[in-house]
Structures are given as C-alpha cells and as structure tokens.
Amino acid sequence: MAMLQESEPLEGTLLPEPFIVSKVRRETRDTFTLEMEPLNGGEKHFTPGQFNMIYVYGVGEVPISISGDPVEPSILKHTVRAVGTVTRAITSVKRGGMLGVRGPFGSGWPLKEAEGYDVVVVAGGLGLAPLRPAILHLLRNRERYGRVAILYGARTPMDMLYKKELERWRARFDIDLDVTVDHATGGWKGNVGVVTTLIPGLKIDVPNTVALVCGPEIMMRFTVRELNKLGIPDERIYISMERNMKCAVGFCGHCQFGPQFICRDGPVFRYDVIRPFFQVREV
C-alpha cells in the first residue's frame, strides 16, 4: 500500500466561494443581471475588465465578466445571457439562491494609463457588460480624463442592456453617448446600422485618444479598422477577448490564443500585442 499523506487543501483559486443572489433584474429576453453577496461576508475587490468563474451546484462553471461598480466590492454584479447549460442554470437561480464564485481573474482596462487622454468606449451587444465598471470609473473620476465618448450597438432596441442607465448617461453633458441598432423595431427613433458607423462622427482629439472595445470578434475587427482609419493607432486600442475556459489560472490550456492565455494574460489586451493572431482564422 502506498504511503499517503493528506496534502494541503486546494487553494482558493480552485475552490468556489458561496455567494447568495440578492437581486435578479431582467435586461432582455434572455439576459439577466444578478447581484450577489458573499455568504460569509467580506468583499471582492476587482479591476474593471476582470472576470469571475461562476459555478452552479451540480451543473458546472463558466467565466463571466464583472459588471458591478468597482467601488462597491461588497456586491458582485454579473450580467449573464442564457446561451448554454450553465448560463441557463445561472439565469434561473432566484433571489436567495446560491452560486459559487472563483476570482477575480485576468487583466483590466487601462484606466490609469488612459488618464489625461480622451476615451472612446465601443461596445457591441453583451460587450457592454465588461465595460460597465470601466464606464462607472470614468464617470466617477471624470476630471481625470479628456472627452469621453461611448458608442453602443445592439441588434434591436429590445436587445439593449442597462436601458435606464443608458438614459441617465445620455442626459449627462460631460460625455457623448451614442446608441445604434442593427434592426429598428416600431417606435425606434435613433440610429440604425452597425456600431462602426458611429466612429467617423466621434468628436475627439485623435492623437490623444485611448479606445476600449468589447463585443463579438467580428465587431471588434471592424471597430479596430474604423478607429485606425480615424488615426488611432493599435497601441492605444484595447480589446477584451473571449475563449473557452475551465480553470481561469493557466492550467487547463483551453483559452490559449497564440502565445496568450486569455485567462491570465487577458481578457483585456492592447490590440498591437495580439494583432498577428487576431488576423488569422481559427487560432
């Protein structure tokens, strides 16, 4: 019989912490924003752009970006679209239900580096979710940045996240918020077209602008192209990537993107760093 010794328990990075869902808000037909608080108290400090692994008992675990306010670390906020087994299970948890959380993991938006610059935020669809904490930071520390412009594109008016908040942001005089939809439905009076159509109209000081981009890969591809056309170089464009992830700590290998591990080196990358791989299909 082999001599066995009980080793140390798994570190916190591999073990989910119990969180209680305190609020569920429906954003769209299939997308919900959950607020959670740690069962055993405490806070989860994070940097805008980071993500958590969210676990549903007996079902599984998926990476979800954090959508909450970085200055409110006692409440964890995640916006989740029900697209697979685990995300369907997460979005059917009711108030008072329990979820497991590991994290936060990964890199954040370059909010410190962007100080003194104009900031353009370009979001497509659910891509607004990981950008929300960054936007909240920009608004709270408005004086540290130049002009701030937010461009948001959704498929239809029904697919827009954070509608009330968008209204509030739009009412502010110190930022420019522009919204567009791919397909208008009855009563829509705003822009129609993909989000990239809004880029040429940006009122910014191009040589002093940092862009934060998140959305489907195809949207990010065209957004980078339009931003480049405007004169913003790759070195000042940041994008957030998504890949299959199992461990979030660089062991499972699933999230590799060329030499990068999205979980560890990303999800937020300066575009020039990943450009050679972003331009190849099926990397």
Binding site: A2, M3, L4, Q5, E6, S7, E8, P9, L10, L15, P16, P18, I20, L39, Y57, G58, G96, G97, M98, L99, G100
Partner: peptide, 13 residues
C-alpha cells in the same frame, strides 16, 4: 440554502 464544500484535500502519493 445551496451547497457546501465537503472535501477539498487530496492524497499525495
């Protein structure tokens, strides 16, 4: 209320 982790060690031969 949800779940509780009951085993998180492992044997190291």
């Amino acid at each position: 209320k949800g779940f509780r982790i009951t085993h998180n060690g492992h044997e190291a031969p």
